Structure formats: C-alpha cells, structure tokens
Computed example of a mutant assay.
Amino acid sequence: MAFKQISQAEIDDLLSVERVMRVGFEANGEHYLVPLGFIWHGGALYAMTTKGRKTQLAAANPKVSFQIDTSARTGPFSWHSISGEGTFEIVTDSKEVKAISPLLVSRFPDMPNWMQAEYAEKQEQGKVVFVRIRPSEMTGRKSEPA
C-alpha cells in the first residue's frame, strides 16, 4: 500500500461527492470532535447545525480542524482523505443563508422525516444556525496499492 498526495482536482471531486466532515474544536482546554453534513461552495465548507457545545467552543476559538474521507464507501485500506484547518463562522447574512439553505437541503434528499421535523421545530425555536468554514490550509492524501 502506498500513500500519495492528491491533486486539487481530486480534492474538488471528493468535496463534491462526500457529505460528512468531522470538525475538531479546541478552547479553554477542552477538545470536541463532531460530524457535520456539509456542502463545498465558493471556496468554503457550509453546514447547518444547532447551537450548543460546538458553537460555544467556536465562539471562544474559531480556529478548527476538519477531515473528510471516502473510507465509509471504500473501506479502511483504499481511501482518499482531506484534512485542513480553517475559521468556523456563523453565517449571519440573510442573503447568504437564502443561497446556502436550498443547496444544503438538496444535498440530503435521503434525510429521514423525523430529522426534517426535528430541524423544523428547532428552526422555529431559533436554535438552527448556518455555519461556514473558510479553509486556511487543506491537503489530501490517498491510499492505494503500490
């Protein structure tokens, strides 16, 4: 097995196909890792989530790390992976939210009814936020037979 860097084109392909990223937060001596559904749009990773531990940690330290890979589809021995760092921001511009919201929703046509209902309820309560991670660094690797 050989590990190789992947090209920007391969990174872009992976970002257009995969739907889940893991985001690492660190603030006040606390570390937190969470999966988030995402889209890649305009050079940033966007997600819809709820207020809570991750948004509290990001308010204290907006610098995050992230990782996206193909191992769920390909197995643990043949994979493509992207790792990076960036700034976690809550999107407050209503025009940006209006542009991103349908893109995120269309990315998850298989979202179960119970989750749709839960998000609708949380949205009514003002608990849903749209977030953006602007990568400051992003690299990719792959594992394949030598």
Rank of each mutant, 00 (worst) to 15 (best):
V128C: 06
E85G: 08
E124Q: 14
L15K: 05
K142H: 09
I39D: 04
S78I: 15
T70S: 15
E121W: 14
A47T: 01
M138I: 15
G24K: 02
M21A: 14
T139M: 09
K63P: 00
V131A: 10
G75D: 05
Y32C: 08
V17W: 12
K54W: 00
H41W: 03
G52I: 08
Q116N: 13
W114G: 05
D13A: 12
E26P: 08
Q123K: 15
S101I: 03
R73H: 14
P102K: 00
V105G: 02
E18K: 14
S78T: 14
Y46H: 03
I82G: 02
R132I: 09
Q116T: 12
Q67Y: 09
S101C: 06
P145D: 13
R19Y: 05
A58E: 03
M111N: 09
D13W: 03
Q8W: 01
L14A: 06
M115P: 06
Y119S: 04
V17A: 12
H41L: 00
G42W: 00
S94V: 05
I82S: 03
S83F: 11
A27R: 10
T50P: 01
M1N: 05
E96T: 03
T74L: 15
K122N: 07
L104H: 10
I6L: 09
I100E: 00
E121K: 14
P76W: 11
T92E: 10
Q67P: 02
P102D: 01
D110S: 15
D12T: 05
I68W: 07
T139Y: 08
S106A: 12
E121F: 13
F3L: 15
Q116K: 15
G37E: 12
S81Y: 02
S83K: 14
S94L: 02
P76H: 13
N113H: 11
S71D: 12
M1G: 08
K4A: 15
S81F: 09
T49N: 06
S7Q: 03
G75K: 02
M115N: 09
T70F: 11
P112E: 14
A120K: 00
A47G: 12
M48C: 11
P76K: 13
L103H: 03
A146L: 13
D13H: 07
I90H: 10
A146V: 15
I133N: 00
A9Y: 08
L33A: 12
I100P: 02
P62C: 00
T55D: 02
S143N: 13
V131M: 10
T55S: 03
E89C: 02
L36N: 06
E10N: 06
E89I: 07
E89S: 05
M1C: 05
